[in-house]
Amino acid sequence: MKQKPKTKSSTSHHYEPLIIEKWALRLLKADKNRTIISTEPISRIDVEDAGCEICCDPGTREEHTEQGNLPTTDMYQCSACNRTYHWSCLKQLQCYKEEDRINIDAQSDWSCPACHDLFLDKKEARSHASQHELLNVTWSPTWEPKELLHSWASFRQMIQIYEARQIAPPLDEGLDNLERQGFCTSINHSRWKSTQGKEIRSKACFDMQPTNPHVDITSTGHYEVWIRAVDLFKDDIAQNRSPMINATHKASLPKLYEARAACIYKPDGKCIGMMTPERFHLLR
């Protein structure tokens, strides 16, 4: 990421990924003010809201005037090169007349004027090439002058909506200002005082019991007895304890072994003890 300039009135700008023709990449790289993070090939047929190849506008030319909010019906996609065209743009270039539209609508594999006269193998070659002609380019954020915010009305409106949503957390009335900032002023201070607010503090639950991941289970809400294999160890050190560890008396590790045991669990899933399965069956 670029270093923030020393000018105070600047804001961080994040750019949406841009879909460009592959040949245009060198033009983007020439722009010293933008840093390209990644480029990824994208198939032309996967591009949503593709623009017209003639006017570059992705919007419709007909819906607003005659058909209201119906889906776009005047954008035609070439079955060979997968490029898109407005019907009105094609007419304007005198490629077609209005009466040709019925025939074109009836065709399932319409080809644009550029591909229309190609042989089948050439069409297939163009279709294949269309999968690699575009690039999805992502940008690194830049620091732009703050005045830029005011040049875009809708963006300014979005900022106002965002700032209105920010709700300041309520003050912790149980603490004075210093305590709220993390300083401990009272003599009988509590270690658990925090600046997180009394609501969170009332919900906090401190688990003072250590958890044994080898034995403990998820809380079930009631007492449980599970007969299961557990790892136990024998501490022979107690039997052969030496006051000093030296060349003669070497330190030894406890011996680990697996055994079946009846583990007794509290409602919170903590194992409070074990007993031999035989003893457990005696008590039943």
């Binding site: 009631h222 007492y223 449980e224 007895v225 007794i264 509290k266 409070i272 003890g273 007993m275 039943r284």
Partner: peptide, 13 residues
């Protein structure tokens, strides 16, 4: 007495 498990837990405790 509630259940065997709680009684054994009490015994161990």
């Amino acid at each position: 007495v509630q259940c065997l498990a709680s009684e054994i837990a009490g015994l161990l405790q």
